[in-house]
Design a protein around this nucleic acid. Structure first.
Lengths: 215, 215
DNA sequence: TTGCCGACTGGATATATTTACAGCATGGAA
DNA sequence: TTCCATGCTGTAAATATATCCAGTCGGCAA
């Protein structure tokens, strides 16, 4: 197969993707719109060139009559997410956490979910099932799975998972001269002011992502 | 998937075979000729029945807009690995969805994400990047990846992806004696009242889940 | 019997799609 | 410089397709 120019390759790729996404090849007009051409004829010219070079085959007067011939298989474009370690097992989903017990204790693992770390802002170490509506304002609803990355420090304004005495909670972190406050993102819930003396505050990890089933 | 009659199965098989043989689904006329019908309308009726039973999916006014749903995916010969179905390649992230003021959406696969179907309420066929804040009340924020399952019908109250003319939007479906309305979940955004006459409303699929990176 | 569904025929029509024709601009090769 | 390939815009016409409407027929269940 003769070599394709970058532009021609883009047309070829679009055909391949459309085939995969819709089950049928695109029309000239669809190609033109997708690649930003004002005229479908530009796509037509490209197709003829691709056919001449042996990358595709065109059916005469046949709507969507484009067949891929070239040998380039679909590749996982983009970077492949590299997990820290246990890629195969997926992320553990943690349910309710008993008081004082380490979050990642085996007995808390309900199941495992295979998820690419690519969808998180940073690699997650486990998933936590959110309970309650205190963070709905941040788009974190009751029942959501929260991707958590274990860290030792939080920065101002970040959403993280904290342990306050016996309770594990998700809140936005805020610290100023008056001390630390854990802010809820729901007017119906009060912010939590942490009394450095009396309360025992621990950071479980940073919230790096949310997964939710919509029914 | 509802059971098919022998005749319906023959139509289904012909679509599958045509897809494998030519790289594109057949037209009504081609189906009619292949199965010996004198009228393409006979094929049309069969297709509608197949769609109703969930065996295929029909694209509105789209030439060769037939998509197989039931059973094993067919091997598009040539270099095209069929997407959709799954696991190995992950879900395709397709274009952007206007969730605020409708924005022109150019459909096109941006990347792929490995996600277990288990986190969705139903298997997703692809992921769409949400654009806009009109569904924040439902915990769907700007930039979120929305898991979409291609279907042919929505039920009252479900959140789905609609195409209104050239615009793609995520909204909650509502239908009553006055007609169809697409409800935003954000007081700052107006609900969309669909004019059955003037507007061309199409269902892209059901929202089955949300993925979001928190930074 | 009545009514509904699966299976068609035939004809009409609005779109969707392909394709030809006419140009324009750029850059490399002869 | 001239020729040619790449890459486009724009318009129009010829076809290909999807879809709607109006009926027909036989089987089956209420």
């Amino acid at each position: 197969m003769e070599k394709l120019t970058p532009k021609q390759q883009r047309v070829y790729d679009y055909i391949r993707d459309t085939l995969a996404a819709t089950g049928a090849p695109p029309t000239r007009a669809e190609i033109a719109e997708a690649l930003g051409f004002a005229s479908a004829n530009a796509a037509q010219a490209h197709l003829r060139t691709l056919a001449r070079k042996g990358a595709i085959e065109l059916g005469s007067r046949r709507s969507r009559g484009i067949r891929l011939l070239g040998g380039a298989p679909i590749g996982l474009d983009g970077p492949v997410a590299n997990d820290d370690d246990h890629t195969d097992e997926g992320l553990a989903v943690i349910g309710r956490v008993a008081a004082g017990m380490p979050v990642l204790a085996v007995e808390h693992i309900e199941r495992r979910v295979q998820v690419s770390q690519a969808i998180f802002s940073a690699p997650a170490d486990y998933l936590l099932t959110v309970q309650g509506d205190s963070m709905t304002g941040a788009g974190i609803l009751d029942g959501d799975l929260l991707g958590v990355r274990r860290t030792t420090d939080v920065r101002e304004g970040q959403i993280a998972v904290f342990r306050l005495g016996d309770d594990v909670t998700v809140k936005r972190f805020h610290r100023d001269r008056d001390g630390i406050r854990l802010l809820a993102e729901n007017p119906d819930y009060p912010d939590i002011t942490v009394d450095a003396e009396a309360d025992e505050l621990a950071l479980e990890g940073l919230a790096v992502g949310v997964l939710r089933a919509i029914s």
